[in-house]
């Protein structure tokens, strides 16, 4: 129970600091992309209840770049899954663009994931049998607008500097290229929230910089970007860093101790 107020304090602090940075964007847009209050996530594992999140508060504004850092097992992935509507919190309130996500049916959540959220998965998760452009098209795979989808996908890959790699298969691409394909895929439906799990993991510094520059461009378009990372470099780059320790969030790592 003590976790909630302690988590609340830093959240208020970050909210104040964000407001100054993203004021312009949040005024034109209608408030935060996603807000969570007292979010608890528990798992049942072998008869034991594991609390992955212990009442965390979060708020992601449009155009904001947030880095979530923390040791493994601290609940980073769980938090990212909750943000991406892949997981439902056990308790607590999560509002996506003002709507309580607990009111969504599974179908509705899937639709919101498609329309609002873009995912960049850890280790890319490209489909090996599809070409780069087809991988980008995946979220719209079953839509009836193949021509428009192809155009969007080509544009995005062009923007990622992969215009000459459209028909290459993932095993013909370098790690950085794969990651950029994955980012293009996450953008194909014009998301309002981009979630990236270790986007620069296993990439050299130069490629990592390119990815980060891309993220900056995305945030400039008003997309909220949340990334889970081990990389301090990424954390420095972010507008705001959230430390997750044992399921609690802290704005300042010193507080965690």
């Amino acid at each position: 129970m003590t976790a909630e107020p302690s988590a609340g304090v830093p959240d208020d602090g970050t909210r104040a600091s964000d407001a100054s940075e993203t004021d312009g964007a949040s005024e034109t847009d209608d408030g935060p992309v996603i807000v969570g209050e007292g979010v608890v996530k528990e798992y049942e594992t072998g008869g034991e209840t594991v609390r992955a999140l212990r009442g965390v508060e979060f708020r992601i504004d449009p155009g904001e770049f947030v880095a979530i850092v923390g040791p493994s097992g601290s609940g980073k992935s769980t938090l990212l899954n909750v943000l991406g509507l892949l997981d439902v919190p056990t308790r607590g309130d999560v509002r996506l663009q003002g709507t309580d996500v607990s009111t969504f049916s599974d179908t509705e959540r899937t639709r919101r994931r498609k329309e609002v959220v873009g995912f960049v998965f850890q280790s890319f998760h490209l489909v090996p049998t599809l070409t780069a452009v087809e991988n980008v098209e995946i979220p719209r795979l079953l839509d009836r607008t193949p021509a428009a989808t192809r155009e969007t996908a080509c544009d995005l890959l062009d923007r990622m500097g992969l215009a000459d790699r459209l028909d290459h298969y993932p095993d013909e691409l370098s790690g950085g290229q794969k990651q950029r394909v994955a980012i293009a895929r996450s953008l194909v439906n014009d998301p309002d929230l981009l979630l990236a799990d270790e986007p620069t993991g296993n990439l050299d510094r130069e490629t990592g910089d390119r990815i980060l520059a891309e993220f900056e461009r995305i945030t400039d378009e008003g997309v909220g970007v949340v990334t889970v990372t081990h990389d301090d470099y990424v954390a420095e780059f972010a507008d705001r860093t959230v430390h997750l320790v044992d399921g609690d969030v802290f704005a300042d790592p010193a507080e965690a101790r």
Binding site: D106, T110, R113, H125, I138, P139, L142, R185
Partner: peptide
């Protein structure tokens, strides 16, 4: 499995996966 998980995560509906 992983690939279908990606499909589901990026917004392909359950029924669409089933149908395919």
């Amino acid at each position: 499995r992983g690939e279908i998980g990606v499909l589901r995560a990026v917004g392909i509906h359950r029924t669409e996966v089933l149908r395919t």
